[in-house]
Each structure stands twice: as C-alpha cells, then as structure tokens.
Design a protein around this nucleic acid. Sequence first.
DNA 1: ATAATTTGACCTGA
DNA 2: TCAGGTCAAATTAT
Length: 334
Amino acid sequence: MADAVESGGRARLVSELGRVQDLVRQLELQLRAPADAASVDLCRRLVHQIVALTDRSIGMLHSSPDLGPSPLSATGTGSPISSDAASDHHPFRPATASPKKRKATARWTSQQVRVSAAGGGAEGPADDGHSWRKYGQKDILGAKHPRAYYRCTHRNSQNCPATKQVQRTDDHPALFDVVYHGEHICRPGGGSGSAKWAQQQHNPHAQAALQGLSARLTVATTTTADAAAIGAAAALPPMTPESCPVRGASSPWSLASPVGSDSNGCLHQGVSPCPVPGYRDWASDLQEVVSSAFAAVSSAAPLPVLDDEFMSLECFGFDQNFEIDTAMPSLYYP
DNA sequence: ATAATTTGACCTGA
DNA sequence: TCAGGTCAAATTAT
C-alpha cells in the first residue's frame, strides 16, 4: 500500500514540475514578445503560477526525508529551527500540529521561510511588504541568537492577527528564519480595495507561497542534490536592482514585490514583471533550471507519502484547467 | 506628540 | 518547573 502512495507522491511532484516547466516556457515566450499591457498581465499570471507550483514542490521535498533533509533541517549545527524546533514548527505544517505551547486551539496559517538579510545588512531580513511592530524578544534555549516577535502594525486599528517570528540562524548569521502566523486582514487604503487584493487576502496559502518563494529568491540553502535542483529553480537568480533596473528595488523581494501601498503603510503584494532584456535572459535560465530539476526528480528515489495533514491543510489547490486566456484565478482554497 | 522599540514580568501548555 | 509566547511600562526615535 505504501508503495502505491509513495509512487503517487513522486508522480505528483513530477507532474507539478512539468507544469512549472510549461509555465516557464510560456513566460519566456511572452518575455520575448513586445511588451504591451496584455502580455504584462499574462506574465503576471504566469509568475503567479510558477510561484505557487515551485513553492508547493519545494514543500513536497521538505516533507520528503528520502530525498534528503530539507534545507531547514539539514544544517545539523544546533540551530533551533534546524534541529529541535524543526519538529515543532514544520515549515509547511500549521502551528496547530505543534505539541508546543499556546495557540493550540487556534487555526493559524503558518509558513516558515529562510531569508537573507536585506542588502547583506545585519539588522534583519528584507521587507516582506507588510508593516510589522516588534512586541517582544526572547532568548531561545540552544540558540545563539534571540527570537524576535512581530505583529502587524494594524493589529489594533484593524484587528489584523498576522504575526511573525524572526530568528537569525546559528550557522549563517546573514540568514534569518522567519515564521509567519495568521493572515493579514488589514486593508489597504480607505477605499473598497481591489478585487485582486481581496482575493489574495482570502487565500493565505497563496500569500504565504508568494512570501516564501520571494524570500527564497535570495535564500542560501543547504540542500541535497535533488532539493538543490528545485531550490535553485526558486533561488535563481536573485532579482537584485542590477538585474532588474526598471524597478530599482532595493529589496530582494523584488519578484513578488509590493505593488501597492496605502496610506496606512500596509502594503499588499503582487507580482510585477520586469520587461527588460536581462530579465528575459533570466527567464531562459529559469527554464533551464526547471528542466534540470524536473529531470532530477523524475529519476529520484520514490517519494514517501505526504502526510494527510500536509496535503489537506497546507497545499493550496491548483486549477488544473487553468487557461492563460481566462481570468486571473488559478489558485483556490480547497 | 506620537509611534516604535526594548525589556523584565507574567501567562500558558507540556 | 521550564521554555516559549505575550504584555505593558519605560525608553527611544521620528
């Protein structure tokens, strides 16, 4: 029985990567075409798809010991997240699954990512598009660095429940492990807000996926060969200001960067194309990497069963019938 | 003046 | 009892 499920899991991963490959090809085609409003919009949708699928695929690998330890649990150097805490806060498992502490009854959405310090700075990870207010710091047993606790700035004004925890990794001081809890319900601007914003707000998984993947755009991870191939697909090449001069962004979150800001300073994320020559080359590289990842996973050892909780709670659905020419939604909440 | 951060105390679950 | 998470007063920054 296990074999059937395992091969099913692997087939699922291969299928996901195959779709990523297709999407990247479409993206590359679009990027080679003259940029107009329609193609820009199409690129935006494609990037959305790629972001979601790669994040999901990486999640599968993280939960797959047979494909090697996950980047967040492979360091073995005593990092609280890489060792003890990894079992408490699985990167793609809600906090409710944790045997630890508070919030045991709350149905938090949770997403853990590892991000680099902004611009190589030492203060903390890059801006993730939301405004946060620090409300605590705690020394964690066995960790070299304290953990900082942040809540959404709009917690009081809009009852936004989103929180995050940031902790510098033991082994790579330039890297931070960030765990997001809850979803933002704070609204941008005083108006009714865009439908796109509303949709995203109602899909915390998509939100988390965007944050997760965009974080990994500059993430340095330690991976096994297979995971490295996948990780590379997500991590290559960092969208620095140099590679994306149009945006001139200083944040490594460029690919899934904030596209709007309201008077409250509550940013909402979106995906912006970067229609410059360098970006087109980057798309080619991405396709190449995805292809190699696809090949690597296709020949990988059988993927062990993904636990039901992971599949039911942490995998947002993906519209298999998605067509590029149809309206936006392709991520949906199962 | 207001907002954000710091930090010790307190609370909660294991 | 302990460790992680949160509160809230004091402090600092804007």
